[in-house]
Amino acid sequence: MTVFARRPALRWLAPLAAVALLTTAGSIVNSLTATARESLPPRSAAQLLVDVQQARLDGLSGTIVQTSDLGLPALPGVAGNSSSEFSSLVSGSHTMRVWYAGPQHVRLALLGQFGESDLVRNGTDLWAWSSKNNTVNHMTLPADAGSHPDTGTPSPGAAMTPQQAADKALKAIDPTTAVSTDSSAVVAGRTAYQLVLTPRDQNTLVGSVRIAIDGATHIPTRVQVFAKGASSPAFEVGFTSFDPSTPASSVFGFNPPPGATVTEHAAPTGSGQGSGDQGAGSAPAQGGQKAHVVGTGWSSVLVASVPGDTSGSSSQSGSLGTLSSTLKTLPRVSGSWGSGHLLEGTAFSAVLTDDGRLAIGAVPAASLYDALSAP
């Protein structure tokens, strides 16, 4: 389906994806009609997908609020002085400012209680700044990095209209997800359509995913993930203010603050594609094993190996040490698959085994144990 390959619908979720990577299973549509407010004409869900595909916007700016209520225990370093660090996004509520003027001009500012962290892409310059330690990381990218113009060349066997491509894509994923339309939402004071994705799989902890699509620009402006039986989202990221105009070029200029420690990094040597690219399903893991996915759709489980000691010893540092220290406070579990610590959230579960394996998915703990026992 060339239209989806050349113009991915989720590209307009880039400002949201910069905050957190949100992966959901596929969706289906049976030509249900969106019951929008009077200011919005009715649109079927398939038509809305095409609207997103064909959306054209030179730039945007706004404020994004991300809230996570995943049922996690209190995690060290996610509030106070650390709330301006991107690692804090796994818990609580966070406010960000975003500016976008094309893939080579992007700025994201995470605003904490006592500081700020910025990510800035300005042409070939990529900057990351943290006010906590006044540190700056800089990389000079290749001139064509992040620029993928649409050549308009169709793939073999994919000559079809955008509407036909949308219908075909939705039909293909019919077994996993039901997609309905809800009455239009209001996001950042703007009327929006809303798609509701409901898993057909009864084994998943996810009850629904709701995606709001701006009625005027057709840009996705909010994503909400609800656990089963919950009335409030376990995860939400969306605009509270939204300006669909191109920001001034000066917004993307960055000069290290006085006294900042600047570290230069080498640019990546490849495009991340081809034989040198290792996806999640082929990443090397400890002991020569590879990360792999057990199951399909919403109830799939990722099984990988965590490098290093998982005992939480003092020799550990950084995020792995924090993870191990946190897991030591969680319940111990065991079975034919081994033993370890269990983290149960409202929309996902995770097990870190004593032999260094990590199993995680939007499923109950029993499904993780089955995945760990699978050959």
Rank of each mutant, 00 (worst) to 15 (best):
P175R: 07
T177E: 11
T177M: 10
A178V: 06
A178Q: 11
S180H: 02
S180G: 14
D182H: 06
D182S: 14
D182R: 14
D182E: 12
D182V: 10
S183W: 05
S183M: 10
S183H: 11
V187S: 01
V187T: 09
A188D: 00
T191F: 01
T191N: 13
T191A: 15
Y193N: 05
Q194A: 15
V196Q: 09
V196R: 14
L197S: 09
L197Y: 09
T198N: 03
P199N: 06
R200V: 08
R200K: 12
D201S: 05
D201P: 03
D201T: 02
D201H: 03
Q202D: 14
Q202S: 15
T204F: 06
T204Q: 05
L205N: 02
L205K: 14
V206P: 05
S208E: 10
V209N: 01
V209M: 04
I211Q: 05
I211G: 01
I211M: 09
D214R: 05
G215D: 06
G215K: 00
G215V: 04
A216I: 13
A216Q: 15
A216E: 15
T217A: 05
T217K: 07
H218E: 03
H218F: 12
I219P: 02
R222V: 04
V223R: 08
V223K: 04
V225Y: 12
V225G: 02
K228I: 04
G229H: 05
G229T: 08
A230V: 03
S231C: 07
S231H: 08
S232R: 11
F235I: 10
F235R: 08
E236K: 08
E236V: 13
V237Q: 04
G238C: 04
T240G: 01
S241I: 03
S241E: 07
F242M: 04
F242L: 11
F242V: 03
D243T: 15
D243F: 07
P244T: 12
S245C: 03
T246M: 03
T246R: 11
P247A: 07
A248Q: 12
S250L: 09
G253F: 02
G253Q: 14
F254Y: 13
N255D: 10
N255K: 14
N255Y: 03
P256I: 08
P256C: 09
P256A: 14
P257N: 11
P257K: 13
G259I: 07
G259L: 09
A260N: 08
A260C: 10
T261G: 09
T261K: 15
V262N: 02
T263K: 12
E264R: 12
A266H: 04
A266V: 05
A267R: 12
A267P: 00
A267G: 01
T269G: 11
T269W: 01
S271Q: 10
G272N: 04
